[in-house]
Design a protein around this nucleic acid. Structure first.
Lengths: 216, 216
DNA sequence: ACAATATTGGACCGGTCGGTCCAGGCGCTC
DNA sequence: GAGCGCCTGGACCGACCGGTCCAATATTGT
């Protein structure tokens, strides 16, 4: 579904190079802090190429960046994300996220920081990025739904609300990771999110004890 | 400690008016999306006044905005924030936060969104805003420390880490609130954060059951 | 080989941005 | 009431930014 129609292999490669480089720049300096000239310089291209591959201008480029980052982050959560219906899967998911973001030079969610910047300046683009966020969040909710149906969560547990909370921990953890320049906030936030999930397990059936939460 | 030296009452009022209006604009459109001309138009002032009251230019204005928003949000958490050493106080704190942000037209943490935008474009300003964040977070940690000393948390609980997680829930909840245009994410995130805190209580002494977490 | 199409380079433009400058108005003090 | 320092208005500037345009070059299909 990516806009790669009518592109030769060379063209597609150039387009990919532009998106990848621009993604790094935006991650480091934000959308507003990254000019098209910066992208041009960083990719050894010319202004016309930017508008050739992204006729919609900066907005379209930002959208492509969001799509790329979304692919990356979803990839990093495989195979746990699709099967978040056991406690073990959630543990694996947690570790995969910490490992992925811990391996990067910059922190801050490439998607989350985007929305807070686009809302109010580019609502159309923001809406599309929010769609990505919802897709991600949907995986969490679906897993929790299956856990509830399978008796791993109490019948009155609300998968939608629990997923919202867990996802908020991810986003907040990454925001603080960016602020404090450390992976620790994400790690702590995820541990707490899992502890909150365990608290929604049936009494006397609490799964594995989330001991990681309380002792650093 | 605010830079109000050598200001007439009239001057101080003008300065305050500028900061208040600029704060709203920045909250709605972000730092990059708010120009000094926007501020000028919104305050019925002139360019020279902006630089008269904020010789450091936009950076200094942003810092003043951050300070104002910090005062506001701390004020909204009174009196719970200073005495977060009982479960009741945490419940009150949760409700105060939801009430405060629910009453606003725009969501998104006025401080949190600032750092993600300033990191990478204005590191000096970002550092100062992070200082505000740490001050806020410190209150949570101090409360948890006292709870542990008082036996309300297990001796091996880590107040620093727990505070980090709870604060991440606040920030993440607000980020999602901004994205989804609803207060629900903040509410869900805070409930989960409290559930995680309860999970660090001594066994057989779990305080009040965090029933709000699982059923919406 | 040759035409159609994809790709590239870079000059150029209008608008906007943060920031400077100076001249005049206002209110306080002695 | 006269001087002095805070306050205000707005023209102005250089830099930068997103975006357009056109000409030139490579690549592909036949």
């Amino acid at each position: 579904m990516t806009a790669t129609a009518g592109l030769t292999a060379k063209g597609a490669a150039t387009r990919a190079r532009i998106v990848a480089t621009a993604a790094d720049l935006v991650l480091a300096r934000g959308v507003g802090g990254t000019s098209l000239d910066d992208v041009r310089a960083g990719t050894l291209t010319s202004k016309s190429q930017l508008f050739h591959y992204f006729p919609g201008g900066k907005s379209e480029l930002v959208l492509a960046i969001a799509e790329l980052q979304m692919q990356r982050v979803l990839q990093a959560q495989q195979p746990y994300l699709e099967t978040l219906d056991t406690w073990a899967a959630w543990d694996g998911w947690r570790d995969a996220l910490v490992a992925y973001y811990g391996s990067q030079a910059h922190w801050g969610c490439p998607i989350g920081t985007l929305v807070s910047e686009l809302v109010g300046t580019d609502p159309a683009a923001a809406a599309e990025v929010v769609g990505h966020l919802n897709r991600w969040r949907g995986h969490l909710r679906d897993g929790l739904s299956r856990m509830r149906d399978g008796g791993l969560l109490r019948p009155d547990a609300d998968p939608e609300r629990l997923a919202l909370a867990a996802f908020a921990s991810v986003q907040g953890g990454l925001l603080l990771a960016q602020a404090l320049q450390s992976i620790e906030p994400l790690s702590a936030a995820l541990d707490a999110a899992l502890a909150a999930l365990h608290a929604a397990a049936p009494v006397g059936h609490p799964g594995v004890a989330p001991h990681r939460t309380i002792s650093g």
